[in-house]
């Protein structure tokens, strides 16, 4: 099945802006991020802590909802879902 990925700010530079990815049925958001990171170590190191958890500054939305209000990285994907990835915000 296919899901859409929308990368913003710094992640746009690392991944490209918006693209479609084929994932297996029942794949999770975490699995999608791992797949994206497997060919892109810079992306991998920017989103995950050394213990594998998502870095706290990263905001991931699944169909407009934060995955923290769903099942986190375990949140399941279905055909046509849109995953948005936002980088940390620098204050000033």
């Amino acid at each position: 099945m296919k899901v859409a990925v929308r990368a913003f700010a710094e992640f746009r530079d690392l991944l490209g802006g918006e693209f479609s990815v084929s994932v297996r049925e029942g794949e999770s958001v975490g699995g999608l991020l791992t797949a994206l990171g497997s060919t892109n170590p810079a992306f991998q190191s920017r989103i995950r802590q050394s213990d594998g958890n998502l870095k706290p500054a990263i905001i991931i939305l699944l169909n407009g909802r934060s995955i923290h209000s769903l099942r986190g990285l375990e949140s399941g994907l279905t055909e046509g879902d849109v995953v948005a990835i936002f980088s940390p915000i620098a204050g000033g």
Partner: peptide
Amino acid sequence: IFGKGVAP
């Protein structure tokens, strides 16, 4: 000191 950005 952590200066790792902010979250709304």
